[in-house]
Design a protein around this nucleic acid. Sequence first.
DNA 1: CTGAAAGCGCTTACAG
DNA 2: CTGAAAGCGCTTACAG
Lengths: 339, 339
Amino acid sequence: MSVSIKDVAAKAGVSLGTVSNVCNKPEMVAPATLKKVQKVIAELGFVPNASARTLRAGKTRVLGLVVPDISNPFFTDLSKGVSDAALAAGYVVILCNTDESSEKEDQYLDVLAGQKVQGILITPARDSQKKIAELANRGIGLTLVDRPAIGLEACSVAVDDAQGGALALNHLWELGHRKILLLTGADNIPQVGERERGMLSAINAVKKSERPTLHKIRIDQMSTASAADRLKAYVEEKGLDFTAIICGNDLVALGAIRSLRDLNYEVPHDVSVIGYDDIDFAASATVPLTSIAQPKYQLGFAAAQLVIEECESPDKHTHQRVQFQPKLIVRNSTSAPIK
Amino acid sequence: MSVSIKDVAAKAGVSLGTVSNVCNKPEMVAPATLKKVQKVIAELGFVPNASARTLRAGKTRVLGLVVPDISNPFFTDLSKGVSDAALAAGYVVILCNTDESSEKEDQYLDVLAGQKVQGILITPARDSQKKIAELANRGIGLTLVDRPAIGLEACSVAVDDAQGGALALNHLWELGHRKILLLTGADNIPQVGERERGMLSAINAVKKSERPTLHKIRIDQMSTASAADRLKAYVEEKGLDFTAIICGNDLVALGAIRSLRDLNYEVPHDVSVIGYDDIDFAASATVPLTSIAQPKYQLGFAAAQLVIEECESPDKHTHQRVQFQPKLIVRNSTSAPIK
DNA sequence: CTGAAAGCGCTTACAG
DNA sequence: CTGAAAGCGCTTACAG
């Protein structure tokens, strides 16, 4: 039914090996033979069977991309970078959306192992280091995305989160804010912890009398809805004991703005709000969002290039940590506090 | 390096065939043998090699998902539905982002053919019917997503676009709008054409003296940026010769609102704007967006189920067209026109 | 219920 | 430069 290398060989009057060489090592085939075989390949619409090739040569040219939430624009843009880099190198990527569940992550990791993917790009769920370590041992290339590769033999690609936290805090401080609320996820999420570390250093860098306070509230899900609910509950209980909010991401910031509006506060007049990620919509939001931009597409592109390099030449490859720098984008959601 | 069925057989003291049966037809293995072999499988961490299985059995359990733009939230949500349905059935999905380019689409289609995917879910680029037809002939399951399967032996899953167009038009008409602008993509995009057909029928359904006019302007890319540019240029040239805009999607609507604001017009006071897709951000936009909601996740889920059904039992399978109904979501971007 | 053997479609040394 | 042959790791009739 599907045309195989045998059909091509028969029609071209050459052996199987020669057809294979035409596909994979054309430089070692006589020009005339090459031309003849290529013509037959085109006529028959022959596409080599990847399974057979893999089985024999051990190369699938398939990558797995494991992300917690593909509808988060951060990961959407990242995945575009990954796909593009992959396609350019003749690779293909299997998308695995874990919904932050480490069971789903494990399930996917097994499937990927069975599919004999050559490399995996992963932003792991909270507590899943063991299964990942196994993978590295099975000879699957591994690159950690947006997470440090703690205790793991692997490449990692990330954005300098401490710097991002410092950027956010300094911006608010320079505007004159001294009572800042941090609305973000659990601090055992590495990025969250790192950013807080950056904020703390920034605070300690100013002289004591001018140091801002940083009060933290945690949300389980960094989504618009849970941020809105959580902040509303907080303000209804405690009142407005802050003049600015640093949010875990732009989705959270949108939720914060929504709940503040519900409570009849105005952004940035009553409260300044700063997001993180600078997603596409940040500029079109109710109040155009001040945010910390991360090079999402580049992050994905670089990560894919790293694993592919590891796949292609595992011996030459040495693990590396690539760190991109974040950038402050000032829009309308932040201003000086009212006196 | 990787553990194979041979290692399991040796350690368990049975033949290869028996190990295979334990994995695939456990009911035909004696309970004692079954238990013994399963124990060894667990100990060794054996995962069957998908390539070998495929090569022999012809089943990859891999699906290809080909979309024009994964960063469009419509396709993001859709892809989530696809992944979830796939995972539930033990399938995995390769993500192919074509950026609306039919070359990239062809390239991906070849790769997918080589990977011997069992099914393809595709929202084709404008002009690429032939390569797709080839696929169906190669025995690859095919489901058209959000496009009718014109002249193709295939399933399709779509939303009733004519109804969506009618919904939008009727909403504006009922508010009293009589001069409506349509800001959308080329009308050779099937959905665009269908929605226009729906609007036209809706117009013709009202009595002549009360019929609204519908003026159309086209944009190449249905993105926020190009919508903003195009509308701004139009209004600067012609002025505000309409009281409401129906947009090709929510991204376009956000762009329209942005450019109207730049020109110092207010939404909905001066102009009503209605979007399409009801993306997550619609509710958090500058002006919370009135939009036509499509069941995106369900669309993807249903599409995946269809191809999987086709893959599993090609004989029993009969092609079908599933059509979901859109829904009008009224928010703040539409109101009665000023007199 | 279990084992031995063929074969899926390629690639890769190895002769020639 | 080209061909013949082995073998990648499984599944699947077929004996027994």
